Simulated assay, not measured.
Amino acid sequence: MSDLRAVASIILGLRQTQVALAVGVLLLAPLSAYAARRVGWSAHRILAAAAAGMGVALVLATTLGRYRDGLMFGLGRSCLRTSVGLGTPEQQLNLALFAPATFFAVVATRRLRLVLVSALLLSLGVEGIQLVTDLGACQTSDVALNLAGAVAVAVPARLLVAVALRRTQEPSRQTATTRR
């Protein structure tokens, strides 16, 4: 895991990534909290939605905000077909990258499938942008690792939500039976 920390510090140590992360957090966290508030979610779910927005900002800043050469559009490129594994720091980073956004999105929405489909679409979108802009390398293994990391975090998050919901409903059930 020291390799993962090294890659994370290199990526987050770049000024353009820091700026992209700051802009993303300043836009996505309040937007997510506002949307959660508009649908009437509790304060805990609003906070989780804001944290999920920050996680998405981290994904975008890390994947698209670390290249100095600017945009170079082109067609006719293809994604690299690379093997899925955890042998390199970049592969480890791809596995962990979607974890914060996915965890907090599941806590906020309580909808496992919706969050996992959204994570898949975001990963495919990032790879598509990388394909046509040269902001990184489009690699098929990145999508698989991003989704595997999202699943690894989403399932325990959903179980945690189920336990929390059961605990909050138990006192009301007990008082209802004692009233009878």
Score class of each variant (00 low, 15 high):
residue 4 L to H: 14
residue 7 V to E: 15
residue 12 L to I: 13
residue 13 G to R: 13
residue 15 R to F: 15
residue 16 Q to V: 03
residue 23 V to P: 02
residue 28 L to E: 07
residue 29 A to L: 15
residue 32 S to L: 06
residue 33 A to C: 14
residue 33 A to E: 13
residue 34 Y to G: 15
residue 37 R to P: 04
residue 38 R to D: 06
residue 39 V to M: 13
residue 40 G to A: 10
residue 42 S to M: 04
residue 43 A to F: 14
residue 44 H to A: 13
residue 44 H to F: 11
residue 47 L to H: 07
residue 48 A to C: 09
residue 52 A to Y: 08
residue 54 M to R: 01
residue 55 G to F: 08
residue 55 G to N: 08
residue 55 G to T: 11
residue 56 V to S: 01
residue 57 A to T: 04
residue 63 T to P: 02
residue 64 L to H: 11
residue 68 R to Y: 09
residue 70 G to R: 06
residue 71 L to W: 10
residue 72 M to D: 05
residue 76 G to R: 06
residue 79 C to W: 06
residue 80 L to N: 01
residue 81 R to N: 04
residue 83 S to L: 06
residue 86 L to W: 11
residue 88 T to F: 05
residue 90 E to P: 02
residue 91 Q to M: 03
residue 93 L to G: 06
residue 93 L to F: 15
residue 96 A to Y: 09
residue 99 A to I: 15
residue 108 A to M: 06
residue 112 L to E: 00
residue 116 L to Q: 00
residue 116 L to R: 02
residue 120 L to P: 01
residue 123 S to Q: 02
residue 123 S to H: 05
residue 128 G to D: 07
residue 131 L to E: 09
residue 132 V to H: 05
residue 134 D to F: 08
residue 135 L to T: 03
residue 137 A to R: 15
residue 140 T to E: 08
residue 141 S to Q: 13
residue 146 N to R: 10
residue 151 V to Y: 04
residue 152 A to G: 09
residue 154 A to R: 08
residue 155 V to S: 06
residue 157 A to H: 06
residue 158 R to A: 08
residue 161 V to Q: 05
residue 161 V to K: 03
residue 162 A to T: 10
residue 166 R to F: 10
residue 167 R to H: 09
residue 172 S to K: 10
residue 173 R to H: 11
residue 175 T to W: 15
residue 180 R to T: 14
